[in-house]
């Protein structure tokens, strides 16, 4: 299945208006009534499956505030034939705009082969929040293969460029230390922590070019969420 969904938000008379809202199954976008700029992302079919190519483009014009919130975890399953599934999210944020991309967890089931790609292109005064929660396998299940790539640039400067590959090395203390859940929370354009804050399995760090990243490694999603919350990143 191939699908491309797209949202374009603009600021009109001091209020964010969704200039364009295009859903394509399974990516269904539901605007929230009463909260301008809030859109729920609903998975309207079982996806991603092996072979799926899903694209989501989020564009915020100058001063607009766009928040995309997931409603349920997505379960990445293998397709009928062995094939890679790919979910690409692209954000363009203009001057003074804010984009928040807050999906629910992605659960990578056994034999699934999935690529998650996030790219962000920000003007220097734009703000961005990106949350990611990767769950490697359901309870007691070994995970399939996953590549997660995040690239964010602000103006000309790179802010964050990370590629995580989940394979046989997840048990390595250098990679995921055998923990099943990785939660991250990236913020750009907000107040950065003056120095790093670290717990045993979580940290909140200022990035070199501005912006900050909270990371937690846990055995379950609840614990990961709690650690991110302890780093004051729950809101």
């Amino acid at each position: 299945m191939k699908a491309h969904a797209r949202v374009v938000a603009e600021l009109v008379d001091g209020r964010t208006v969704l200039r364009e809202l295009r859903s394509q199954s399974p990516l269904t976008l539901v605007p929230h009534r009463g909260k301008p700029g809030l859109v729920h992302l609903v998975n309207s079919a079982s996806a991603p499956l092996g072979g799926d190519e899903l694209d989501l483009t989020l564009i915020a014009g100058p001063g607009a505030a766009l928040r995309i919130a997931g409603v349920a975890a997505s379960l990445v399953l293998p397709g009928p034939k062995p094939a890679l599934s790919r979910f690409t999210v692209h954000v363009e944020a203009a001057e003074g705009s804010t984009v928040e991309y807050l999906p629910e967890a992605t659960v990578v089931t056994q034999r699934a082969h999935h690529a998650a790609v996030f790219t962000g292109s920000l003007e220097p005064s734009a703000r961005l929040i990106v949350r990611e929660m990767l769950v490697l396998g359901r309870e007691g299940e070994s995970p399939g293969r996953l590549t997660s790539e995040t690239t964010v640039r602000r103006g000309e400067r790179p802010v964050l460029s990370q590629r995580l590959e989940i394979d046989s090395l997840i048990a390595s203390p250098a990679v995921l230390a055998g923990r099943r859940v990785l939660a991250t929370d990236l913020r750009v354009g907000y107040e950065d922590p003056p120095s790093a804050v670290a717990g045993e399995w979580c940290s909140l760090v200022p990035l070199a070019a501005g912006g900050s990243l909270a990371t937690a490694l846990a055995h379950d999603a609840v614990a990961a969420q709690r650690m991110i919350g302890l780093l004051n990143r729950s809101g």
Binding site: T151, R153, P158, S161, Q162, R163, L164, E165, S172, P173, A174, V175, L176, A177, L182, T184, A196, A198, G199, E200, W201, C202, S203, V205, T215, L217
Partner: peptide, 21 residues
Amino acid sequence: PADLPGPGAPGLDLLAEAHVR
């Protein structure tokens, strides 16, 4: 340079921050 891959290691990142502390 902008297109060079960036393999990350959350485990090493967390160990490094905890080490400093």
